[in-house]
Design a protein around this nucleic acid. Sequence first.
DNA 1: TTGAAAGCGCTACCAC
DNA 2: GTGGTAGCGCTTTCAA
Lengths: 346, 346
Amino acid sequence: MAKIHEVAEAAGVSISTVSYALSGKRTISAETRRRIDDAVRELDYRPNAGARMLAGRRTNIFALTEPFRADTYAPAHMAFVLATSIAARRHDYDILLLTDEEASAGMRRVATSGLADGVIVLDVAPDDERVAVARLLKIPAVFVGVPTDHDGLVCVDLDFEQAASIAVDHLVDAGHRAIGFVGHPAEAYLRSNFPPRVRAGFEARAADRDVRVAIGSPAIGGSSRRAAESVHATVASLLEQGVTALVLHCDDTAHAAVTEELARRGLRVPADISLVSVGATFDTSAFHPPIDAVPLVPQASCDLAIDLAMRLLSEAPPEPGVHLIAPEYRDRGSVAAPPGHATTAG
Amino acid sequence: MAKIHEVAEAAGVSISTVSYALSGKRTISAETRRRIDDAVRELDYRPNAGARMLAGRRTNIFALTEPFRADTYAPAHMAFVLATSIAARRHDYDILLLTDEEASAGMRRVATSGLADGVIVLDVAPDDERVAVARLLKIPAVFVGVPTDHDGLVCVDLDFEQAASIAVDHLVDAGHRAIGFVGHPAEAYLRSNFPPRVRAGFEARAADRDVRVAIGSPAIGGSSRRAAESVHATVASLLEQGVTALVLHCDDTAHAAVTEELARRGLRVPADISLVSVGATFDTSAFHPPIDAVPLVPQASCDLAIDLAMRLLSEAPPEPGVHLIAPEYRDRGSVAAPPGHATTAG
DNA sequence: TTGAAAGCGCTACCAC
DNA sequence: GTGGTAGCGCTTTCAA
């Protein structure tokens, strides 16, 4: 609650010198800087946020739109919000939360009232209403996820097609010639934009590598017993089609249901069947057995999103466009050659 | 981006009249008000947030500390954050998010920089480090949850003891004389403050009503297969001890595991065994069968928390203390008389 | 390398 | 019922 005036007095310098010393926007002699730092520490001084916003050009706040819909997968959303917050703090930015009904109205509100310098958009839907709002805003927006119509927007996302490709490559390289795909329930392919991208990447690469595929989607999502049974049935169907490996792009409960069904059938991973998870935000090494993964890392997406937001505020803002993050394969030992496969060296 | 000056000009009144018309802090003639409203709408005017904070006494922002630890139950945290945000917006307040490492430092930062008018503390641990910080802050704090040392703090929470009591009463009134308790894994009783309160309430009321109890806690938490098996074993043990009803105070996965184990044993709910859930944040009517509940309603807690925060900013702030929310019983048909019980009328 | 002072856009006091 | 205006606490020219 000390003011800059008191710091200046205590350090025996002018107000402007204190301001410059704190912002680093002009060179200060070592001696002066020391006296100011001492005074700041002594008085526990911090610039008043309101005054800073008013006088300066920056609020040092990013608005974060995250609908927090009840039917969405909470742990992932939590991870993204957390990662965004941490990334923002590294640039001395705070996060103002815009949820739910306030998604669009809130974006307009914080933009026209000058409460935030930019907006980070999470949990992006294919036909997201926030796209239109973002285009009208006078402050920059960064989308974490790619809406169908992303013309002129700055978007960040994992390269899901590539992630699926890598998974396929890994399995084909190990000798698999028939690969099953366990996807999200059908609704997810309408509400989110990445499930179709994963499946497309999977099918495209499988075609390239000339291997057979079988696609399965559980009928029911969630963590209920019926959801698990639905996964069991999906796995059963895929196995009947003769696949020797599975690519999983589904939630953690479904992952668990898959390993459960394999165990029930006495199938060992990776001796009898290989497993690779694609686009998971949870820790696939915690399953029994641990599962190879090409994960979606919230921190990677959010770091990039904040980085882009910062650059959009600079004199040389980046061009609009989709910034895809290169996926990485994480080996956990759930992939091996299919049963009966003659191992080739090199 | 229009300024108050332009609104005043467009409406043909002074700046102060516009300010007062918007804040409602003095009476304005109908005609003047109409002209101002028109101008505001036409120019899409919103007061500059920074200027408001600086000139006024309020920032219209509450900081929300929510660590978002990875090992915590995400859906519940999400629900509390969402509920807090919605409650705050009803009072024209925004939420600034303080996560993780910044919990304590962030509270100090927003308080001394005047970024927030108050702090809402979520996910409160028994020995929460934020308690000490809150005591030193120059802005009010409201805890959603009750830390062990809550002297001088304003806390809000469900009356968990009472919630457990109600559950016991309901079962005893139905004729049960031996009730089992399925609790959280042991760690939860150290990390959180409410599990012990539920168990204490359960045991106390059972003693009052002179019924036999059996306490069970799964060894393992989470949604893994082993966790489910741990619940199964707990249920088995309780049944062996002859209970005819179960009180559940555990996460959704454990709830599902309980119903699963009962189904596996051919026990029908409520004909063979009765079930009541206590303190759940998830929807217990979505289980098969639906389960009676004395739920923890995030909205109730958060509405009260924001209400208290608002009052702490008023001329007549409330006294510190723990504000317990009265629990409510939700009947979903999972309770009946125990097998062989002679039904009594009235 | 440092200071003085003009705003930033609003709120709220004082006057009418 | 309305208007004038002094700050709120900073940032950032302009001057030295």
